[in-house]
Design a protein around this nucleic acid. Structure first.
Lengths: 353, 353
DNA sequence: CTGAAAGCGCTTACAG
DNA sequence: CTGAAAGCGCTTACAG
């Protein structure tokens, strides 16, 4: 039962003890075929007893094995700068694991265009990647792709939003419901009892964007559970150009005197712009994401709070999870929720997105 | 000017091009003596042109070099559970760099006992470590030690609190002033105009603990800069046992009707306990640090907000900075401020300390 | 000041 | 099914 400290014992020693050649030890170690059950058992026993830890440097130096990962996320555009952060995280992870023989090939799609998603998946499938990271935004199309990957036994990581119930390696992203719940908790602090709160969803495809609805659900449930007398109203704005948003907001804000406005995504900057142009003051504004425009309005106090969920880390950890799984055979936690960060005018300087 | 992709070219190729042996190339590569200026220049030029990147795996496999790091932080006790987190980060980093030939030896001291600090530094100095991570809590004693390390050219990393103006590799920790400033920003949201706010410092050595005073300074300055009409009062409590704190608080809270209490360190749990036992409600409570006791009172709503600064990451990044500096010869940023995280009842579950 | 050889602990063909 | 040899790209003595 004595355990030597790792590194002290190598294949040579194992081979000596098992009365075989190091080639045979290597076969067992790497689970290759061509070893009799008997010698395999003998070698495994010795490995176990010695608590053998392979030398990763020697392994990497000698090995010629290469792995190829694909990533599939929305392309960065003026409208969706958000995705620069996950891409950034992906690139950082890629450069870290490059020396370990891993090549990462990025694919993109247009968030407003299902066909572009299908185009990319059609390109990915025949290339037979060893692992895939994706943002499964279009549910229906994603499920087809997921099934294809499962058939080919390609491990799959989801980031940003989840499609539960499928056979993915893991999900890395926000707990949307809870982030809405937290937002309500903050909203509740902002002004005294009996607030009037307006929830604003701004998105072209609201019916499909469960993620906005899940945030709204969390937000609403907070007030239900905490039995508050606040009044919640909501509007869905399905055209994302400023004139349209402006009109919708004017219409809604004329109806009542609100204390808090909660915007369920990064479009909060547009609402802030409206507040500024129309000289609206005294309404607290809460929204999402650490983007340049949003930070601008945070600094000038138009936006009060931003909720952020470390998009860069989602990309980084997503790719690293594939690496840990495939190379280090590590156990990967299936649901990895990001922290729910609260950003204000006074701490954004130190935030690492 | 053509650049081959890294990894493609090795010492052998360089030696061939320079008409020397690989031994000589190695001498130049590792800056060892015994190479004529002329051949050295020739080899350096080739290395440059080829954009040669050494293979870290081959290097590590062949090298027998070892480095030894020391860490010096307060020991974890019931009173200072906080330090479990930095220690945790240190241990994680240590296990990650172990395979790269780095040994980490931890030293501790008693936060309430300067002599214990001196004892540890006296043990560290003669051992001639290659790098040291420390929490320079006792300023005077620390400066002596810092000087000794500087004389010996041992790189030094500070975590948790800084002593500016000395020759350390870097500081990794909070911006205390700003964290107080942020706390005031939050306090300002909590109740309407004209609040009465009580600042509570609880520490045995308040005169020495600049860090509490720097937080207080940030807190006060926020209100000055934002021209608010809030009234700030403060008390220093220099005995940390509960009966004493209880007495001081009772005395103070009898004087006025406060809206917000701001505790400048992790002792906020003690104040929360007082609130609970004395059935005090309606006073918002803000404090510091993600500790079990504090989270308990966050969950039951006695504490409203906790400010946290990733203590674990401080230990982790501190040790990694030594590694990056010494092994990878990377440039290390001198001041690395941690994010200022806002923790509430609704997001603590996802916080990674 | 320089070179030739051995070796780090693995993996990879190749031979039997 | 198994073994012996070569090689990955470096570093380390040792010899001259």
């Amino acid at each position: 039962m004595e355990k030597k400290n790792s590194g002290t014992v190598g294949v040579k020693e194992i081979a000596r003890l098992a009365n075989v050649s190091i080639g045979t030890v290597d076969r067992v170690l790497n689970n290759r075929v061509g070893v009799s059950e008997k010698t395999k058992a003998k070698i495994l026993k010795i490995i176990e007893e010695l608590d053998y830890q392979p030398n990763i440097f020697a392994r990497r130096l000698a090995s010629k094995k290469k792995l190829r990962f694909a990533t599939l996320i929305p392309q960065v555009s003026d409208e969706t700068k958000y995705w620069a952060a996950p891409l950034n995280g992906i690139q950082q992870a890629a450069s870290e694991i490059k020396d370990f023989g891993i090549e990462v090939i990025p694919f993109f799609f247009d968030q407003n265009n299902r066909a572009s998603f299908l185009e990319s998946t059609a390109k990915i499938i025949p290339q037979d990647f060893d692992g895939i990271l994706m943002a499964p935004m279009f549910e229906e199309e994603s499920i087809v792709f997921i099934q294809q990957c499962n058939d080919r036994k390609i491990p799959l990581v989801f980031i940003n939003s989840d499609i539960p119930g499928y056979n993915n390696l893991c999900y890395i992203g926000p707990n949307l419901y809870q982030s809405g719940f937290l937002s309500a908790h903050i909203a509740n602090y902002l002004t005294p009892a009996s607030k009037k709160i307006l929830i604003v969803n701004i998105s072209k495809e609201i019916d499909l964007h469960h993620h906005l609805l899940r945030k709204e659900e969390g937000f609403r449930n907070y007030f239900e559970q905490n039995g508050s007398k606040n009044q919640l109203t909501k509007i869905d704005i399905q055209q994302t150009d400023y004139p349209h948003i402006e009109q919708k907001l004017s219409q809604q804000l004329a109806k009542d005197q609100y204390n808090v406005v909660f915007v369920t995504n990064s479009r909060v900057a547009t609402v802030a712009k409206y507040f500024e142009e129309h000289k609206i003051e005294g309404i607290k504004l809460i929204g999402y994401d650490f983007l340049e425009d949003n930070i601008h309005y945070l600094k000038n106090k138009t936006i009060d709070f931003l909720i952020c969920q470390k998009p860069q880390e989602q990309g980084y950890r997503g790719l690293m999870s594939l690496y840990y799984h495939l190379v280090l055979h590590a156990n990967i936690e299936k649901e990895q929720f990001m922290p729910i960060d609260i950003i204000t005018k006074e701490n954004y300087q130190y935030y690492s997105n």
